[in-house]
Design a protein around this nucleic acid. Structure first.
Lengths: 340, 340
DNA sequence: CGTCGCATTTAGAACGATACAAAAGGGGCC
DNA sequence: GGCCCCTTTTGTATCGTTCTAAATGCGACG
């Protein structure tokens, strides 16, 4: 079990060539004679040699890993995103270093510091709430390129990949307006997160274009989880006339709201319209199926991975800002308003 | 952007001490004089030094990473498991190397080969279906300890962490028997996976203890996804009298079945009883809330991480086999049988 | 026969850290 | 002053790979 790892030198000794030759064989160099190659390859197999990429990376001053720091893996949106990142990185021969922060800037600090010590070629960071770009820059240094996902960081001069939150929320709101709704709430999320602000802005855009003033009680905050959202349901109905529809911050919130509505005897999709955001797998199969804005998190993961790898190859171009398209998927949770 | 990384030598030069001294400072050795330490630490900060753990690991022949290979990150059960692993590894100063296989043995081969080259201290593997232990052993070699999670591998002499599938399914079945059910199906999963076989065994144990013979049409296979399960619902009702309750392979299957029941005008929790397995977050908040067997995937992740770290410290003890306790959580999806 | 060209192979110095043994610098004591 | 001891510092080899420049072998050619 604990015998030493087999190294180049073992192989070299085993078939009486130099370490350099074995190294050339490993990298398929055309320099080695066919016969020598065969001999060495046999020995590699015989001894069960496993390449040590860390040593190679050290010598070459390169890296074959990319760090992925995510705030909440148990959120299906981020789990899908992570799967997409890993898929694309793996295809390019890179390995994913994982870190999760659980929305704590404290843990984020530690996780980034620890991952940076492993000299990743790049970092994909979905920042915890209230992160400070300047502070993070100090931790990771200036030599490692970073791609920020999802939440804009103040003071960061890094690549940024965002969902087109504003347009997505506008699409959802326009859909509800078209169905005849006039009192449309924006439900859930924390108003101080950039993604929530942008989605609210999209909601406001559509309302304004329709000539409707958004009333403050229609803007309801809640933590972006199902349970917290369910608990906030009653906030929708404190004033009369109450909204007849709600654009939700994300799918988790929308599912929570539907639950809360059921509990109050309302039937989403029949007497109250609900839209979500993300199109998590569950959205298609809940009851009623959720009308939502699809963002293809797995595709976003692949996109993030490809972007950071490109950045690794060309470090000195100016930071880019990508807004991934969002598209509305209409399902059963949206309906006309009750008496229209 | 692309200036060289700052190294020990840069710091040493910058404050006129030797590399060895700087190294001692970094490791908080009591050997260095307080004044020297202060001087070096200032220089470290000034130059923005980032420790290179790969180089240190090479020299020390150690590793500070553990590989986590998981078949499906988009399954919330595994996402939670991964979060637990990362949490515990991080707390112990290790970093998680992530790989996902999507249930393909082909990809699993590649992923393991690639991760092994990064010389992880250990590997936590939740194997893809139909994996062959001997083959995997050849890929990872004998020097890296492996902990197998969830699915027993034939021919593997590695640590194994399993859910107590048999007992969990027995608990669920006993609960239904107690409620008065007699015709209880086992619904979903692939009969050739070890976890499905064990859960079916638990179901059989309870039925046998109650003196009831399990009829073959009550054993229904389906892929372990919500949609596939929903599509299989009708298989429950091909024979009369049909089962009045179903023990499901897992929560995804149970949720799919509830969906299929609704579509057929049945009301789970009122005229048909359903149990799940895993207690994914959704189970508590769906309608009706799902009676299920809780396995605490995040806790399992932590447990796996701790076990593999222990194995790293003591490689030569005999492989252990852990069966994590499973416990029944009774919620609204189980009810008495219709006319009793 | 020397030497040039070509295809292969190799010795030895990196990469950035740590370990070990040895050196340097002070006191204190006889 | 010489010796010893203690604290602090440092030179150098090393981890497993790759890179560079140089060596080797060998046939051909003038």
């Amino acid at each position: 079990m604990n015998q030493r790892r087999v190294t180049l030198a073992d192989i070299a000794r085993g078939c009486k060539v130099s370490r350099a030759t074995v190294s050339l064989v490993l990298r398929n160099s055309p320099l080695v004679a066919a016969e020598t190659r065969k001999k060495v390859e046999a020995e590699l197999k015989r001894q069960g040699y496993v390449y040590n990429r860390a040593a190679a990376n050290l010598r070459q001053r390169t890296s074959s890993s990319v760090a992925l720091v995510v705030n909440d893996l148990s959120n299906p949106f981020f789990a899908e995103f992570a799967a997409g990142v890993d898929e694309a990185l793996g295809a390019a021969g890179f390995v994913t270093l994982l870190g999760s922060t659980g929305e704590s800037t404290e843990r984020q600090r530690k996780v980034l510091a620890s991952l940076s010590e492993h000299a990743p070629a790049g970092i994909i960071l979905s920042p915890a709430e209230h992160s400070d770009g300047n502070e993070l820059l100090k931790i990771v240094g200036t030599h490692t390129p970073v791609l920020v996902f999802n939440r804009k960081l103040p003071h960061a001069r890094w690549d940024f990949l965002a969902l087109d939150n504003r347009r997505g929320a506008r699409l959802a709101t326009e859909h509800l307006l078209q169905l005849g709704h006039r009192r449309i709430a924006f439900f859930g999320g924390h108003a101080d997160s950039s993604s929530c602000r942008e989605r609210r802005q999209g909601h406001a855009d559509a309302m304004q274009a329709a000539g409707i003033a958004v009333e403050p009680p229609w803007l309801i905050e809640s933590a972006p989880t199902r349970l917290q959202a369910a608990a906030q349901t009653s906030a929708l109905f404190v004033r009369d006339p109450a909204p007849t529809a709600a654009v939700c911050y994300n799918d988790a919130v929308a599912l929570g709201l539907m639950l809360g509505l059921h509990a109050r005897g309302r039937r989403p999709g029949h007497d109250f319209a609900v839209t979500g955001f993300d199109d998590i797998p569950e959205a298609a199969v809940c009851l009623p199926p959720l009308t939502t804005v699809a963002t293809d998190p797995r595709g976003r993961g692949r996109q993030a991975a490809e972007r950071i790898l490109q950045r690794v190859r060309l470090p000195d171009t100016t930071p880019s800002e990508l807004h991934a398209a969002a598209e509305l998927v209409v399902r059963g949770s949206t309906c006309k308003p009750p008496h229209s």
